[in-house]
Amino acid sequence: MASVKVPEQKVILCGEYGVGKTSLFRRFATNTFVTSTDRKSTLGLDHYEKVYMTDEHQGVKLQLWDTGGMERVASITSSYYKFAEAAILVFSLDSPDSFNILSQHLLDIVTYAENAKIFLCGNKYDLKNQIHVTDADMETFCEQCHNLISGTYKTSCKTGQGVEEMFIDISKQLGEANRSRKELDSLNKNSFKITPPEGEPEDSCIC
């Protein structure tokens, strides 16, 4: 992989439980799929970075975030959304409920991550004869949200179909868009992440 230094772009997954967010995350991170909802296998892992080359010289580092399952019972913390460059609204093509509730998730995104580009992803495309959300439904949704949606995709985490294509397309769009975030950038210029001080052993106990 090219070793160009690229800033990471935070991309968050949003949507109801069970639609396949963690499965998308797993495809992205390890290109694997598990049928059981064995939560253990994802414990401790909630974001993963990967560089996509948009052309020979330019790369975009996507940093994909999974919700960690918090949405099951409580609202996700608002910090999940902060600094997100993109949000993927995920629903399950076999579940109209998971689709109809997206407007609520959309509202959260525009509230807490107002600069994020928003993408729509219908998952479980492999469930061919149980698909209850049509292309027309998806189009109507995009129109209703005043074309806030920058791209729509149909994926199957089970077969892998469409997943890589989606992430490639999202990285292209994020790379191209020279976001007009200058004001925010200048605002954040001297903010930083805290890191361990040089020379301090990682495991030094603070107690």
Partner: peptide
């Protein structure tokens, strides 16, 4: 607190507000 709540959640903690 939200950051630590998230830590708890990804290690299997269940949240109810």
């Amino acid at each position: 607190p939200q950051g630590f709540a998230r830590l708890s959640a990804i290690y299997g903690g269940t949240y109810m507000l």
